[in-house]
Simulated assay, not measured.
Amino acid sequence: MANGKKLQVTLRRSPNGRLKNHRQCVAGLGLRRMHQTVTVDDTPQIRGMIRKVSYMLEVQEA
């Protein structure tokens, strides 16, 4: 998985009013505001964070 692969993650729904650990996952991915896109490494840890808050995100392979 981590062979130099990248993922583009976009925040599509607001983290306001969500569980604290879900907001922390969004922040851990480097997302600060709505419709912001970040590029992250494709690791099992990042995949777990994405899976936890997948209902708020849009993910594409880069």
Rank of each mutant, 00 (worst) to 15 (best):
residue 4 G to Q: 12
residue 7 L to G: 08
residue 11 L to C: 04
residue 22 H to E: 14
residue 9 V to Q: 04
residue 36 Q to R: 04
residue 62 A to W: 10
residue 45 Q to M: 09
residue 18 R to M: 13
residue 61 E to N: 12
residue 10 T to Q: 07
residue 17 G to W: 01
residue 3 N to M: 09
residue 2 A to T: 12
residue 23 R to G: 04
residue 3 N to I: 14
residue 40 V to Y: 01
residue 17 G to E: 02
residue 19 L to Q: 00
residue 9 V to K: 07
residue 25 C to Y: 09
residue 32 R to D: 13
residue 24 Q to M: 14
residue 57 L to Q: 03
residue 4 G to H: 00
residue 49 M to I: 02
residue 14 S to N: 09
residue 28 G to W: 07
residue 5 K to N: 10
residue 57 L to Y: 02
residue 56 M to T: 09
residue 62 A to H: 13
residue 13 R to K: 15
residue 38 V to I: 03
residue 51 R to A: 15
residue 39 T to H: 06
residue 43 T to P: 03
residue 28 G to C: 06
residue 24 Q to L: 14
residue 25 C to D: 08
residue 15 P to H: 06
residue 53 V to T: 11
residue 62 A to M: 12
residue 19 L to A: 11
residue 47 R to Q: 09
residue 13 R to E: 11
residue 58 E to L: 10
residue 15 P to N: 08
residue 10 T to C: 02
residue 45 Q to S: 14
residue 27 A to R: 14
residue 54 S to K: 15
residue 56 M to A: 05
residue 13 R to F: 07
residue 6 K to M: 13
residue 52 K to R: 10
residue 52 K to L: 01
residue 12 R to D: 05
residue 59 V to Y: 14
residue 41 D to G: 13
residue 28 G to R: 03
residue 10 T to F: 06
residue 36 Q to V: 09
residue 19 L to K: 04
residue 19 L to C: 04
residue 23 R to N: 05
residue 26 V to D: 10
residue 36 Q to C: 04
residue 8 Q to W: 05
residue 13 R to C: 03
residue 30 G to K: 00
residue 59 V to T: 13
residue 2 A to I: 05
residue 39 T to M: 01
residue 31 L to P: 08
residue 3 N to H: 12
residue 35 H to W: 15
residue 56 M to Y: 08
residue 21 N to P: 08
residue 7 L to D: 01
residue 48 G to E: 08
residue 29 L to Y: 07
residue 34 M to D: 04
residue 37 T to W: 00
residue 31 L to S: 11
residue 32 R to P: 08
residue 42 D to R: 07
residue 39 T to C: 12
residue 23 R to Q: 15
residue 51 R to K: 15
residue 10 T to L: 05
residue 15 P to A: 07
residue 21 N to R: 15
residue 7 L to A: 11
residue 2 A to N: 12
residue 20 K to M: 10
residue 16 N to K: 14
residue 22 H to C: 06
residue 38 V to L: 06
residue 44 P to A: 08
residue 15 P to G: 13
residue 8 Q to V: 03
residue 21 N to D: 12
residue 40 V to E: 04
residue 48 G to H: 13
residue 53 V to K: 13
residue 22 H to A: 13
residue 21 N to Q: 11
residue 32 R to F: 11
residue 30 G to W: 01
residue 1 M to C: 09
residue 56 M to I: 01
residue 21 N to V: 05
residue 42 D to S: 08
residue 26 V to Y: 06
residue 41 D to N: 13
residue 27 A to H: 08
residue 12 R to N: 08
residue 20 K to V: 12
residue 6 K to L: 12
residue 53 V to W: 02
residue 27 A to G: 02
residue 26 V to N: 10
residue 46 I to N: 12
residue 7 L to C: 05
residue 25 C to Q: 04
residue 54 S to H: 15
residue 33 R to A: 15
residue 19 L to T: 00
residue 42 D to T: 03
residue 35 H to M: 13
residue 58 E to C: 06
residue 18 R to S: 05
residue 41 D to P: 15
residue 43 T to F: 09
residue 7 L to R: 00
residue 52 K to G: 00
residue 50 I to V: 14
residue 6 K to F: 10
residue 11 L to T: 01
residue 21 N to G: 07
residue 14 S to T: 13
residue 3 N to R: 06
residue 42 D to E: 09
residue 34 M to H: 04
residue 45 Q to L: 08
residue 25 C to F: 05
residue 56 M to P: 03
residue 18 R to H: 02
